[in-house]
């Protein structure tokens, strides 16, 4: 157990915690933030994705020690932003949501991409999604949604 200082969804937080605990378990079991999902537990599927300092990370592979001094944003936190609204609407309009289990992770991947590259090409989108598995859609409608979000949200990123 040790004390770490970090930011979660915009709030400074001080946790007395086992440093080896997975961020995913902390979020789901201690903070009841159930948006990040566990699909594989080994960094393949991306369902557990969160933003750490604006960049996508798999929370199943982040020990609590590694969030010390960093800012973590989950889908719940990101959902309060205007950028989220733009991305969410584009996902709805393009039919990019099916079973929905991968979807919060896909939204996080989209934000992480657009934060660095507001007008991505299709191949940049594919690279950005390469750690987020979806078994329902075949990805095309997700790619279209991200393209649409980038277009609608010009100036937001």
């Amino acid at each position: 157990m040790a004390k770490i200082e970090w930011m979660l969804n915009g709030t400074p937080i001080s946790s007395d915690i086992d440093l080896s605990m997975r961020l995913l378990d902390y979020l789901r079991d201690h903070q009841h933030l159930k948006g990040p999902k566990e699909g594989c537990g080994e960094g393949e599927c991306g369902a557990c994705a969160v933003l750490i300092d604006h960049q996508i990370a798999n929370s199943c592979l982040v020990p609590m020690a590694n969030v010390a001094g960093h800012e973590v944003v989950t889908i719940e936190g990101f959902a309060k932003t205007k950028r989220y609204q733009i991305i969410a609407q584009a996902f709805i309009d393009c039919g990019a949501v099916q079973c929905g289990f991968c979807t919060p992770g896909m939204i996080i991947a989209t934000e992480s991409l657009l934060h660095h590259q507001p007008q991505p090409t299709i191949s940049e989108i594919k690279v950005a999604l390469s750690g987020n598995l979806c078994r329902c859609t075949g990805y095309n409608m997700i790619i279209e949604a991200i393209t649409l979000a980038a277009k609608r949200g010009r100036g937001e990123w």
Partner: peptide, 30 residues
């Protein structure tokens, strides 16, 4: 333990439990 992306895969046991290291981990990523 640096980025932990390999070690947490190797040391995980069951979702919701603390990954088990045979020697105490030294977290240097920060």
């Amino acid at each position: 333990v640096n980025g932990a992306t390999d070690l947490l895969v190797q040391k995980r046991s069951w979702s919701g439990t603390i990954p088990k290291f045979s020697q105490p981990p030294l977290y240097i990523r920060g």
